[in-house]
Design a protein around this nucleic acid. Sequence first.
DNA 1: CATGAATGAGTATTCATTCAT
DNA 2: AATGAATGAATACTCATTCAT
Lengths: 187, 187, 187, 187
Amino acid sequence: MRTKDFDKQQRIKRAMVRLILEEGISGASISKIAREADVSSATIYVYYNSKEEMLAEVFRECSHDTYLFLKRRLSESMSAAELIEAIVRGYYDYSVENEEIFSFVEQCSRCPTLSGNVCEEECYCGIFDLLHAFQSRGEIRNYSDVNLNALLFAPVRFLSMQHRIPEDSRKEHLSELVDILQTLLIC
Amino acid sequence: MRTKDFDKQQRIKRAMVRLILEEGISGASISKIAREADVSSATIYVYYNSKEEMLAEVFRECSHDTYLFLKRRLSESMSAAELIEAIVRGYYDYSVENEEIFSFVEQCSRCPTLSGNVCEEECYCGIFDLLHAFQSRGEIRNYSDVNLNALLFAPVRFLSMQHRIPEDSRKEHLSELVDILQTLLIC
Amino acid sequence: MRTKDFDKQQRIKRAMVRLILEEGISGASISKIAREADVSSATIYVYYNSKEEMLAEVFRECSHDTYLFLKRRLSESMSAAELIEAIVRGYYDYSVENEEIFSFVEQCSRCPTLSGNVCEEECYCGIFDLLHAFQSRGEIRNYSDVNLNALLFAPVRFLSMQHRIPEDSRKEHLSELVDILQTLLIC
Amino acid sequence: MRTKDFDKQQRIKRAMVRLILEEGISGASISKIAREADVSSATIYVYYNSKEEMLAEVFRECSHDTYLFLKRRLSESMSAAELIEAIVRGYYDYSVENEEIFSFVEQCSRCPTLSGNVCEEECYCGIFDLLHAFQSRGEIRNYSDVNLNALLFAPVRFLSMQHRIPEDSRKEHLSELVDILQTLLIC
DNA sequence: CATGAATGAGTATTCATTCAT
DNA sequence: AATGAATGAATACTCATTCAT
């Protein structure tokens, strides 16, 4: 019984995220989500109070999910170069392997009615703790968190969005980006 | 025959852009736009064939507008450091002075049903011609266009979105970012 | 779960048919139908996927209804004269007693976007089986089905439409028509 | 100048009739008609006071047109058999050669908001004068006008509508029908 | 828990018509 | 006479949500 419900909720989430990749936030209606998840639209209201809350909650979960994916690849015992490479490549890999979630988060974080309620960056605090450790050990330059964030994640995000550029070519750009960020951030 | 009232079309565009800043793409319905622009919703269809086409057209215009704003601030006679500063600060200034347009473009470029039809980057080609000139003069490092784009614009975009950080503080981060990018990109 | 309210669907059908009698197909909008049936216009879409499908489905049902009405009045044990009279008078009676349905079917069968999808004549096959029996018994002349159809039904249809002619007078014309068709069709 | 205007009005009429054949009365909007006739929709209101009046007027004209077509083929010097054949075949030929007008008239004559204002049958009075002449000469049976109308025109109308039946086959049925009506109506 | 039925308020779009030129 | 612009009212249809079972 417990598993069954969980599965149903999971299907709802996935359906929503999938639909938003394909049709954008405005294209993801409750009834389409329900159809895609193979449940009644009334069932969605068993799990969420409103569409707004559902979006916010799944947005939060997806942001967290990205963070966990990244966190698993990092460790304090790495060198600074390894750390930066792991972050940049890890984030990129996530965006490719989880295109739906990635696009969903990107859209939500730009939507004024959603981004206000969810603090995407909060989720990344664990990664910044790690970066601080490297900074205090004098291995990574003392740039502000905001700029570290801006330099480590935003360019990758941009690269991931370039669907016009073929995968292979994007991979090469990524390697270049890793090099750039390593020379930039390592003391 | 009545002549086309271009002020009316301007009001429609502005109303749409404004609404999308406040309520997101899904919140900007034709009737809300019409009310905000003080025209009948039927009038919108005098100027545009569909909501989709209207969005795409205004998206294109706004992207171009951003480029023109930036282009006006740049010149080949600048030093490399000045050029980079002008791009970064110019882009930031634009995002602050034209918050509505900036948020609108950000949202459109993430929306899968829109970004496919409009090539935002195309507009920036003029700026890349300038960067290429500096590269061939050996003043700016020979990174690929994609990564130049990723490093010059994406971090600023990220910074502009941090509405939680007070304006003053953001300005300081921006100065740091200018320094970082100058040391990174100048030979 | 609420159970489907078949009375509600009946009301929708009747409202549509009634409206089409009064205002024609183009005058029967979904919202008028909904108001007449005392349901929300959204409710109509619980029962039908589109206006087009609704029209086609009710058109089919009404054609069938006419046939059933007629069929009940006919039997193989009749004489040829009785059969022809039963068909002609039966069809006429139906058109008078069910003016709404009759006018609805007439309009639908002339509408190019509808008549293509519904084969009104199909419904009448049962009656033609009966006529064939009389033909093979040598009691009714061996005219083709198309012409039997044309002669037995089309003139009555025409007569039923003559709202300018008072009911009494029409009845007399009908009697004449019965005589004509009997002498024409009986061997 | 005179011809030019006349031509414009002619184009409007034809566009309307053509559209109604293809999409039914409800599919023929002023703007579609205008587009099809290559005039501005405002121009239509130079020639007609309203859509309703335009429909009624063109309906009347088309009915009259049918009558004129038929009248030209008939003459008092014909034999009764020739007359009946000329009427039946003439009416059928008209329906084939002028499919648009025929379908238009059929639809209008079933539409309750139109048929009330236009008396289609009025137009046919000339033909009935001719039939009366044959009746008083004792060459055609003394059936009532209503039934003559019902028998001479309604079956042909029905046959013309059978688009499922191939043209060749329909022609054969028509010949049978001519025979039937000749034996029926001639003394 | 789960759901099909039901709906008021909304959607994008088109309508017939009028206006100003 | 002719027309593109403009619109209030309507169009078919969908929305997020609630209800009854």
